[in-house]
Write a protein that binds this DNA or RNA. Structure first.
Lengths: 339, 339
DNA sequence: CTGTTAGCGCCTTCAC
DNA sequence: GTGAAGGCGCTAACAG
């Protein structure tokens, strides 16, 4: 069964209701001065005909696209089969939800944008998740002169954007360190991703500050974004003369392979080694033992970013152009559990 | 109030290049008959001024929105922290990529659409991932009269859509069954999600067919979409008088908790019990042992869906309105590994 | 080969 | 209170 494709316009409604198009427009937008009776009749006719104002016409008139884009910069670095996708989906759904509430559509921008694909991009602003230093796609997008809100700061030199929503990675790291130290750890290693994104840099800063404040030796390992690399590195660490008694993994999807590799080595978690992760996710509870981690609240981050961008686009100048969200330490068995 | 920055229009380019707007339009679209020289000059001026045709104007003119939407029906059912998000992100990126290549933007539609949020939705068609029977959001969207391509068939009675991209879940199940049977399993249980989506129904059909062809007893457990439910069910199964020697988990994120629970029970995987999953993902390789599963190729599914939808919207009537993708069995240690 | 003209559907300004 | 007119930027007809 096919429905006639003839779209209803404001003119049809006007004719049917015996009013002018202006009246229809005013009714739909709550503008103008109309009698309640007229408004009601127009509304009834509109509903009956199934009238919906055409977004493209309105946009042309308003000179704005009524859309925002989401660009996940770090996604370029994530190999297929790697965890981390889930984090971004949660963020994306959160952002899309708020965007729609505010009358904006949210288009997903794939990584690896080709210059000619740019023609189809029609957005008033962008949410850029986890900008990686010197990201080519982001550079191209920025040059379009779009309003940009980043999730986490942009480490690219000279980059400047309209707003930022982030969590406090330095503090997260210190929460984890305090926690494992309280569980008795003395030689705590940090495995970080070998990319230049603000979150991993800030985790490192937090780690260094904590170590230097306590006179503890730093043990930082840089690894490629790749679960096997995390496991291999853990083994190497444990083979050292003075092996760590705790490993903090900075990379989503890294902690579970670490636990696994360590156990295959014949060591027990948490008895012989404490393991924790800077990013929560399904992997954490699927592991045995379950892994202590930080809940970064991706959905909420997405909601806030979209809300901030929408406000800026609406011309509001929110005082807090840089918002910092609270995170939560989730203690699980891999660091000794609750007690 | 600041003066809005007037964007460069075709008129500016025309004036600057000393031609008419039509010529500019023809140059940008490759239409009309222009001398190479003129086209070159116009192109040069356009580039110099940074002219980009305004999408909303073009769309108004063409009467189409130039956008498609992605609606993940099953996402409604997924609790926070559950796996499965990653699958949809991969699918979404694949779809967005192809959409953009074909000049279409892809907007992400959140689940739980409120009727007034509908105003901001402006798409020519939809990709609906894993439609769940009687999904309210999908019903609302369908009533807009949009062209719909589903990923997996829509189990809603009477539902009919323009196209479908899917994998063969029946066959997947039978691959898994053949595999674990070859590894010596005789009493194979199937843990399925208690929702009405085509994939879980088809897995069940495949399971039943296989069992009945071999005279094997059926052991089907329906569980809510929830990782703990999978683990609990596994334990219950193993407590029975005649416990299974293999469990196939139909739900993304379910197999890992099953392995874990089984091991905590003191049983070994794969020696005492074979475990496998109908959906591959990061959890599979993070578990110990790694879990045998089916690679459903979400990115490719996303790409194909967007391509099919784009073709249909362009008026092409592709012969294969229902496309079936090949999947791949990935054998890992949880069923004895390769040998 | 290139220019002129006429809208696409909507909203805002101004007359009535 | 309501209606008529104009134009947002673009492209498809038709002239020239």
């Amino acid at each position: 069964m096919t429905t006639p494709v003839r779209r209803i316009t404001a003119r049809h409604v006007a004719r049917e209701a015996g009013v002018s198009v202006t009246t229809v427009s005013d009714t739909m937008n709550g503008t103008g001065r109309l009698s309640a009776k007229t408004r009601e009749r127009v509304l009834a006719v509109a509903a009956e005909l199934g009238y919906r104002p055409r977004a493209s016409a309105r946009r042309l008139r308003e000179g704005r696209s009524g859309q925002i884009g989401l660009y996940c910069s770090f996604l370029t670095e994530i190999p297929a089969g790697m965890a981390g996708m889930g984090y971004y989906m949660a963020l994306a759904m959160g952002a899309a939800e708020v965007a729609l509430e505010r009358g904006l559509g949210m288009v997903l921008l794939p990584t690896g944008l080709t210059p000619d694909a740019l023609g189809a991009i029609d957005v008033d602003g962008l949410v850029v998740a986890d900008p990686v230093r010197d990201d080519e796609g982001l550079r191209v997008l920025s040059e379009l002169g779009l309003t940009v809100v980043t999730v986490g700061r942009d480490p690219t030199p000279g980059a400047h954007h309209a707003g930022c929503v982030r969590t406090d990675d330095r503090r997260d790291m210190q929460m984890l360190l305090d926690h494992v130290a309280a569980r008795g750890a003395r030689r705590i290693a940090f495995v970080r991703a070998d990319i230049e994104a603000e979150w991993t840099e800030q985790l490192t800063v937090g780690y260094r500050e904590w170590c230097s404040a306590r006179g503890a030796a730093e043990r930082i390992e840089r690894i490629p974004v790749n679960p096997e690399a995390a496991a291999e590195t853990a083994i190497q660490l444990l083979d050292q003369l003075d092996p760590p008694d705790a490993i903090i993994c900075g990379l989503d999807g890294g902690a579970a392979p670490v636990v696994r590799a360590v156990q295959e080595r014949g060591l027990r978690v948490p008895e012989d080694l404490l393991v924790s992760s800077c990013v929560d996710g399904p992997l954490m509870t699927a592991s045995a033992p379950a892994i202590t981690s930080i809940d970064l609240q991706p959905a909420e981050v997405g909601r806030r970013s979209a809300a901030l961008l929408a406000s800026i686009l609406e011309g509001a100048a929110p005082r807090d152009r840089e918002q910092v969200l609270e995170t939560r330490l989730i203690v699980r068995a891999s660091t000794g559990g609750l007690d």
